[in-house]
Design a protein around this nucleic acid. Sequence first.
RNA 1: UGGGUAAGCCAGACAGCUGCGUGUCGCGAAUGCGACAUGAGGAAAGUCCGGGCUCCACAGGGCGAGGGUGCCGGAUAACGUCCGGCGAAGGUAACUUUAGGGAAAGUGCAACAGAAACAUUCCGCCGAAACAGGUUAUGCUGUGGUAAGGUUGAAAUGGUGAGGUAAGAGCUCACCGGCGGCAUGGUAACAUGCCGGCCGUGUAAACCCCACUCGGAGCAAGGCCAAAUAGGGCGCAAAAAGCGGCUGCCCGUCGCUGCCCGGUUGGUAGGCCGCAUGAGCCUGUCGGUAACGGCAGGCCUAGAUAGAUGGUUGUCAAAUACAGAACCCGGCUUAUAGACUUGCCCAUUUU
RNA 2: UCCAAGGUAGCUCAAUGGUGGAGCACUCGGCUGUUAACCGAUAGGUUGUGGGUUCGAGCCCCACCCUUGGAG
Length: 114
Amino acid sequence: MLKKTVLRKKSDFSLLYNKGKSVNDRYVVLFLKKNGLPYNRIAFLASKKVGNSVVRNRARRLMKESYREIKEHMDIGYDFIFIARKTICNLKCADVQKSMEAAIKRAGAFKRKF
RNA sequence: UGGGUAAGCCAGACAGCUGCGUGUCGCGAAUGCGACAUGAGGAAAGUCCGGGCUCCACAGGGCGAGGGUGCCGGAUAACGUCCGGCGAAGGUAACUUUAGGGAAAGUGCAACAGAAACAUUCCGCCGAAACAGGUUAUGCUGUGGUAAGGUUGAAAUGGUGAGGUAAGAGCUCACCGGCGGCAUGGUAACAUGCCGGCCGUGUAAACCCCACUCGGAGCAAGGCCAAAUAGGGCGCAAAAAGCGGCUGCCCGUCGCUGCCCGGUUGGUAGGCCGCAUGAGCCUGUCGGUAACGGCAGGCCUAGAUAGAUGGUUGUCAAAUACAGAACCCGGCUUAUAGACUUGCCCAUUUU
RNA sequence: UCCAAGGUAGCUCAAUGGUGGAGCACUCGGCUGUUAACCGAUAGGUUGUGGGUUCGAGCCCCACCCUUGGAG
């Protein structure tokens, strides 16, 4: 992942939380917003409610891995924040991937297949 | 064979596909691309101690206050850690546990109950001796002697037995316990023996006394570069005062506060060093009961910065515990599925 | 990452080492035609957990758990 594709500024986060669109799914929560850039910017979060550091790391890794699989099919020009929910622990990667796909589809940022 | 006890060790492995961080090399103008190598723990955790490192003044003077440790000897850079020993407690035993200096230096506390929680006569016991009064007479009254018995309590001023006495009492004796002195053994804590006198309880994880010891803050320390409206320039002053740091006060000392230019009450903050060769790890050998130390040879083994180890498939009976480095080491404490090794003790059976 | 403070009844807080209490709330009774207010009574506690010191710990000491706050 390139460095410019990672969201890191506090202002970006608060802008997304306040102005962005949010979608809930079973295992993840997604915030997104158009950013007007020719690439996507991503952040993966897992709060302390999810568990200890091992569980939080695993949650982030699962989301990263899933994102790598599905990023080919996503629209360009958005900021995304994926937040892990408590239900994510003890899951396989495929389940997380499905959940993320569903969330993105509902948000309307999925490329139409043709 | 069963039960127990002590010590140690491991913390999935292998293969395929596919991803991530770092380093080296090659290509490229460059964000990069490719190849190879390497990439979390026994506790990385809690942050409870001790150090290194950095800055404050190289750890300052005086007064005062505070914290820590606490049987003895050793190990160590140091420690509240570790090793060995002593005493005490527990266990049939192997063995385990142990903050374990001082209570006649002083102060405090010991609720309720009880006569009394410093030494005191409430109920008792005695009438031998001494004094006063009284009775026909008699401990009858005051005084006196006594701490053996009673009640209470966690605890009642050494315990048990015998002698002794008016009644009693370490008053005397024997044994036990405690204290002091001496001798022997031991580096020492202490142990054993002899002698002496007869000795007021508990609490110091209450204040305290004694001995030893402790400066403060912390890698977001601290330094460099770039950028900046967050600061910069350097002409004058360098004495006083104020504020802040050095844990309280005084001294001392360090930093900031002045004028000029520019700017304003907002949330910006990038890169590099520190930062991975260290009280380092492994093997052998020597010294030591051991902790540990000496010598020789070999090895280089994470370094991220929104934070790198993941996903998936197959085989092994099963792969699942606790859990993720953030400046680094030595410990302690706590969490932990399962697998394995060795010594010792007890019980049973067989020879 | 580092440093502090705290944990007591359903809630907010007290309590010299010596029987754990107050206010509000709950329940019951009274007052009232009824409700509120008011009056009276009852109940409710492993003092965060586990060890230790002590005759005796909410309090003293040690370890752990949880919560809150601060530095930046």
